[in-house]
Simulated assay, not measured.
Amino acid sequence: MNKVSDVTDKDGLILARKLLAAALELDEDKIEPQSQIVELPGFDSLAYERLVASVEDHLDRDLDPLMMVSIDTVSDLAIALAQHKT
């Protein structure tokens, strides 16, 4: 995926941090763009399910499972959100 600096819509990063913070019950300021999602404090299978549900709710559609498994970092999630805006 592209680097987050390539994303013209920085709202994707803001949204990614917000969704992750809610799913992980973590402060947004502790979530850096380059962070590996699976290494964030509180990440587990339940947090992953909450994140997927939040992304689906935001996009108002079911996700392609391959989309989520291709996302490794917070930046990747931001790019995916920006690319899949409704």
Score class of each variant (00 low, 15 high):
residue 62 D to Y: 10
residue 24 L to W: 03
residue 68 M to S: 01
residue 82 A to M: 05
residue 69 V to T: 11
residue 24 L to N: 00
residue 24 L to A: 09
residue 85 K to W: 14
residue 12 G to F: 12
residue 71 I to T: 10
residue 56 E to A: 00
residue 43 F to R: 15
residue 25 E to Y: 04
residue 45 S to W: 13
residue 69 V to G: 09
residue 69 V to S: 12
residue 41 P to R: 07
residue 50 R to S: 06
residue 86 T to Y: 01
residue 45 S to H: 11
residue 25 E to K: 09
residue 10 K to S: 15
residue 59 L to E: 01
residue 47 A to K: 03
residue 12 G to R: 08
residue 61 R to K: 05
residue 34 Q to V: 02
residue 27 D to R: 12
residue 25 E to F: 01
residue 44 D to G: 10
residue 46 L to P: 01
residue 52 V to D: 02
residue 31 I to Q: 06
residue 71 I to Q: 03
residue 14 I to S: 15
residue 55 V to T: 07
residue 83 Q to Y: 05
residue 25 E to I: 09
residue 73 T to I: 09
residue 80 A to F: 01
residue 47 A to R: 02
residue 1 M to C: 14
residue 23 A to Q: 04
residue 4 V to T: 10
residue 16 A to Q: 08
residue 4 V to M: 10
residue 65 P to D: 08
residue 74 V to I: 06
residue 2 N to T: 14
residue 14 I to F: 15
residue 30 K to C: 14
residue 53 A to C: 09
residue 41 P to M: 06
residue 19 L to A: 04
residue 15 L to W: 10
residue 3 K to N: 13
residue 80 A to V: 01
residue 10 K to T: 15
residue 10 K to Y: 11
residue 22 A to L: 12
residue 71 I to S: 01
residue 67 M to F: 02
residue 69 V to W: 10
residue 42 G to C: 03
residue 82 A to Y: 03
residue 84 H to D: 11
residue 34 Q to R: 05
residue 30 K to W: 07
residue 9 D to S: 12
residue 13 L to V: 00
residue 78 A to N: 04
residue 26 L to I: 08
residue 52 V to Q: 00
residue 86 T to F: 00
residue 62 D to L: 13
residue 56 E to W: 06
residue 47 A to E: 00
residue 64 D to W: 02
residue 67 M to E: 08
residue 60 D to E: 12
residue 40 L to Q: 05
residue 25 E to M: 09
residue 45 S to Y: 12
residue 82 A to F: 04
residue 12 G to T: 08
residue 24 L to P: 01
residue 8 T to N: 15
residue 62 D to Q: 13
residue 81 L to W: 02
residue 80 A to C: 07
residue 79 I to D: 00
residue 29 D to A: 12
residue 64 D to R: 03
residue 73 T to K: 07
residue 53 A to F: 06
residue 34 Q to S: 11
residue 6 D to E: 15
residue 35 S to C: 11
residue 72 D to Y: 10
residue 29 D to R: 02
residue 84 H to A: 14
residue 83 Q to A: 13
residue 49 E to V: 14
residue 20 L to S: 09
residue 34 Q to D: 10
residue 21 A to Y: 05
residue 40 L to N: 06
residue 3 K to F: 11
residue 21 A to S: 14
residue 23 A to K: 04
residue 2 N to L: 13
residue 84 H to N: 11
residue 14 I to C: 11
residue 54 S to V: 02
residue 64 D to Y: 08
residue 58 H to P: 04
residue 9 D to L: 12
residue 68 M to C: 04
residue 13 L to N: 03
residue 2 N to F: 14
residue 18 K to D: 08
residue 31 I to M: 05
residue 76 D to M: 06
residue 30 K to T: 11
residue 20 L to I: 09
residue 42 G to R: 11
residue 30 K to H: 13
residue 35 S to M: 06
residue 17 R to C: 04
residue 42 G to K: 08
residue 74 V to W: 00
residue 40 L to P: 03
residue 34 Q to G: 06
residue 19 L to W: 01
residue 79 I to V: 06
residue 71 I to H: 00
residue 24 L to I: 06
residue 67 M to V: 07
residue 36 Q to S: 14
residue 4 V to C: 06
residue 68 M to A: 03
residue 48 Y to E: 01
residue 79 I to T: 00
residue 24 L to Y: 05
